[in-house]
Nucleic acid binder design. Structure first.
Lengths: 227, 227
DNA sequence: CGGCGCTTTGAGATGCCTCAAGCTTAGTGG
DNA sequence: CCACTAAGCTTGAGGCATCTCAAAGCGCCG
């Protein structure tokens, strides 16, 4: 881990475009920038472990971070995959002094970090900050509930189809996607073993899905919705 | 559904002991009580459906409510079971005008309802209200992430054992629990078919768990933790 | 005590996981 | 620029967990 205390220009601009910061008024935004620090991690670096004393909440500027839990046999399950613009550990702003899960860099990663104490204090003064935290928590709660429902209702090919449809932003006709990360990471995100993701892709071939490395071709988005 | 506009004394007292209201200062609490209305439902009544225009967020005063989603074949999956003191649909305070899931009374139920618009306005004025909403959202986010991790890491007997351990509040030795609702509801809460719950209980017999209707005896809590 | 609804049990099917081996991709050094 | 290597991905085989459907058992309420 390579720590840099202040933000460089590019990181700052990325941070400002983030859904968290972009919604703030000028004074709140300045205050948040004031307390932001940047951290870089290499692939597979562990940012923190479940139960560690929590110092920061995070905003991803570049790369992907895996949030996961372990069972007592050491098996891992991903809870969330965070990419550019995502925040994590905001739960702790309202309660708790320990991280609730493990976090690991899935590749080279750049993060903005915010001291939890300072953000708590800021949320007291700046209504904007409190509101943005609320929006952020609501978004995650919604996404996490969606995840439970999908896990419980959908088979592996359906989950993959669902992911492809959200990723391609097209209503009908053909589409092409480039996966932003490794397939094993997508597998974890969807609650599958990598082998199961692979088999799901080959099931989807008959629905017009062609996979070539990280590039995925969809012949007919409408047809894929029927899965 | 039998609607009563104002709270009676017992409902009011129940509401005040709720984790949502009990944390408010006097003025915020009075303001919340001012906008609260009460609604009663019978078992299996549907409170609202996914996609309905959202008017209220809710606080359970008595009974249990099932929040669930449907897939396109009509199969149901529970997302959350809400009991006395729980709130639901608070997600919508920060964003969205439509309910995100279906809600159904699992038995006779008494609810406090709060007009979303009015609570949003109140959260702007009263910092306490905003803070309590944040805590509430954080709690649910945490619980929902726990749920994903448990679904992905634990087998049926492990999930049941985990539920029993959280329900009995004992560190070691024997314990006795009375389930607050039907087993089929517990099955849904744990993401299982009722038959799978039943089989999980019979697996746990060899770990010293005896089931008799809604009453569950645990010979040794410490032993159950090893499952 | 009788009946209805919830729960349990059995049998069979399905879907996903694990392990192991072969293959492809991407990254590295000659 | 190409060959090489390591990592990631795919495929196959086998096993386990949970689901579905069906029928019998039990518990609770009138």
């Amino acid at each position: 881990m390579n720590k840099i205390l202040r933000l460089n220009t590019r990181d700052k601009n990325t941070l400002l475009r983030t859904s968290f910061l972009s919604q703030l008024g000028p004074s709140a935004m300045a205050a948040m920038l004031e307390i932001a620090t940047v951290a870089n991690y290499e692939s597979r670096d562990v940012l923190f472990r479940e139960g560690d004393h929590a110092e920061f909440f995070y905003c991803v500027l570049g790369g992907y971070v895996r949030l996961y839990r372990l069972n007592k046999d050491g098996r891992e399950a991903d809870i969330r995959i965070c990419g550019p613009g995502d925040t994590f550990a905001e739960c702790l702003l309202a309660m708790g002094d320990n991280y609730l899960y493990n976090a690991q860099a899935a590749e080279t990663v750049t993060l903005a970090r915010f001291d939890l104490q300072k953000v708590r204090a800021l949320a007291e003064q700046e209504k904007d900050v409190a509101k943005t935290i609320m929006r952020c928590l609501s978004d995650h709660l919604r996404a996490t509930m969606d995840c439970i429902a999908n896990d419980r209702l959908q088979t592996a090919p359906q989950r993959v189809a669902h992911y492809l449809l959200t990723a391609c932003n097209t209503d009908g006709g053909p589409a092409s996607i480039r996966l932003p990360f490794q397939k094993s990471l997508l597998a974890g995100k969807l609650g599958l073993a990598p082998e199961a993701l692979s088999r799901a892709f080959s099931t989807l071939r008959r629905a017009g899905v062609t996979v070539r490395g990280r590039t995925i071709q969809i012949n007919d988005v409408t047809a894929l919705k029927q899965i």
